[in-house]
């Protein structure tokens, strides 16, 4: 009886992940976005830990620990400092209005489930039903990157996409090898720092973080 309960827990966490992805899509404030990102990381870590507990894969514990350290604590902290320094706590403008974005998002979720169903029927893992959700949250994060006009939310979208991929890996094959996960984690961290440095440069150059200004860089 224990295993179905754990599987249901994983499903609940997956649903939570999807909910957060939608919340991010509709959220206008940067500070809240960062909090949502931290929550997403926490849900990810929890689901990884449950999978580790139920399957006895010890390396998933490390991976969960890493997720907590990096995605729940370090990166949100770095982003907090960044927006403090840059004074960008203001509301976000979107390219498309939020209800439309949500509708597109629903369409994407349906597409992701349609895509994942044949794959999850073949899979034998405990977490197979969550593959569609993982794919959906990747696509939703991608959508968020497209519709946001400011640089900071785009980076948050990028990080959320990485979360979704990580979740997909855990649910489809019980995670990637630890070495790969370590490498990806390091990449994300370094990427965040580099984005931070770029933010300062972009603002210095254009007095704004609005990426529409980058269009001026195009050669005619």
């Amino acid at each position: 009886m224990g295993i179905p309960l754990l599987a249901q827990l994983v499903n609940v966490l997956a649903a939570f992940l999807l909910l957060i992805a939608f919340a991010m899509l509709s959220q206008r404030r940067v500070l809240t976005l960062i909090k949502l990102l931290a929550w997403q990381g926490a849900a990810l870590a929890a689901s990884t830990a449950i999978v580790a507990w139920s399957t006895g894969q010890t390396h998933l514990y490390y991976s969960a620990l890493l997720t907590v350290l990096l995605k729940v604590i370090l990166i949100p902290w770095v982003l907090h400092r960044l927006i403090d320094r840059l004074f960008v706590r203001w509301d976000i403008e979107t390219l498309i209005n939020i209800p439309t974005t949500m509708l597109i998002g629903i369409g994407l979720v349906i597409f992701a489930f349609a895509l994942a169903t044949p794959i999850s029927q073949m899979a034998t893992t405990l977490t197979r039903s969550t593959l569609g959700i993982a794919l959906a949250s990747v696509l939703l994060s991608f959508l968020m990157m497209i519709v946001r006009q400011k640089a900071v939310p785009q980076v948050i979208g990028f990080l959320a996409m990485e979360n979704g991929l990580f979740f997909a890996a855990t649910s489809a094959t019980y995670g990637m090898p630890l070495v790969v996960e370590l490498g990806v984690a390091l990449d994300v961290l370094v990427g965040t720092f580099i984005f931070g440095i770029f933010f300062f440069h972009i603002r210095e150059r254009f007095d704004s973080l609005d990426i529409r200004h980058l269009e001026k860089l195009k050669e005619d």
């Binding site: 991608f142 497209i146 529409r212 269009e215 001026k216 860089l217």
Partner: peptide
Amino acid sequence: QGRISIYLLYSFITL
């Protein structure tokens, strides 16, 4: 186009 959103849209559509 010089717009990051458009470039991301290219990748998205390709994906």
